Amino acid sequence: MSEFFKAELKDRFLEYALERNDYFQVQTLYDEFLRPNYSLEYAQKLVQEIQTYDPNLLDIMSGNGMDIFMLASTPNTEDFLDEGGFMNLYVKEEEKWDTFLGQLSGTPKLTKEERELLKKNTPDLKREKVMLVGLIVAVTISFLFTLVSIFKETFLEPEYVPADEFERKMNQLQEQYILENEKMQRELENAQRVLDSLQE
């Protein structure tokens, strides 16, 4: 059961006690609010949590072999509910967590004016990004031309050569491919480093 639902149930227990002018059993709360999905022990647990939070919210009598048997409201019950009850406590706790998590995120969100001012003051950054994109496109095109060239030489323009010459040529093409691949890998790593430095 969520903390929200538990807070709501505790408030309902207190409201029910406030509506009555006499003592009543925990069983009544169970029958009224929790049957059949939860147990009587769960109702007792919620009353115990109310008691732990503030012993003056309910007048509790033991009996019939149970620590919590009969309940009644107290003058503090109405005051507590008027202040918002357990739901108000839940909301305040959630707000505290939201504030805490907001502070942890660290970077405050920029306003629209601040973002526009930042854009105006960073034309160099735009130019560097355009240059970086151009470099990546050039590397990609170069890589594609190399692949097409290797594919064309290997499959589309076959030359009838002796087996040892063919093997030598294949090794040469493989070495060329590896060298081109390493070169492009270095260029991409350089481009990535430039991109990372721009994002910092």
Rank of each mutant, 00 (worst) to 15 (best):
K10T: 01
D11V: 01
F13R: 01
L14D: 03
D22M: 10
D22G: 10
F33A: 02
N37Y: 13
Y38D: 07
S39F: 00
S39L: 08
E41C: 04
Y42K: 09
Y42T: 03
K45G: 03
K45P: 06
Q48A: 15
I50V: 13
T52W: 01
N56F: 08
L57C: 03
M61V: 11
S62L: 07
G63P: 08
M66Y: 14
F69V: 04
M70S: 12
A72Y: 01
T74H: 05
P75A: 01
T77R: 04
D79Q: 13
L81Q: 00
D82E: 11
E83N: 02
G85I: 02
N88K: 09
K92S: 00
E95D: 07
D98L: 15
L101C: 05
G102E: 11
G102H: 08
G102K: 10
Q103S: 15
G106D: 04
T107V: 13
K109N: 05
L110Q: 15
T111S: 15
R115W: 09
L118G: 04
N121I: 11
L125N: 08
K129V: 13
V133C: 09
V137M: 07
V137C: 04
V139A: 12
V139K: 00
F143P: 04
L144M: 12
F145C: 05
F145R: 12
V148K: 09
S149H: 11
K152F: 13
T154L: 14
E157T: 14
P158G: 08
E159T: 13
Y160G: 10
V161E: 15
A163F: 14
F166T: 09
E167Q: 15
M170G: 12
Q176H: 11
E180K: 07
E182I: 04
M184G: 06
M184C: 04
M184F: 13
E187F: 05
E187C: 00
E187G: 02
L188Q: 05
A191I: 04
A191H: 01
L195Y: 08
D196G: 03
L198R: 01
Q199N: 10
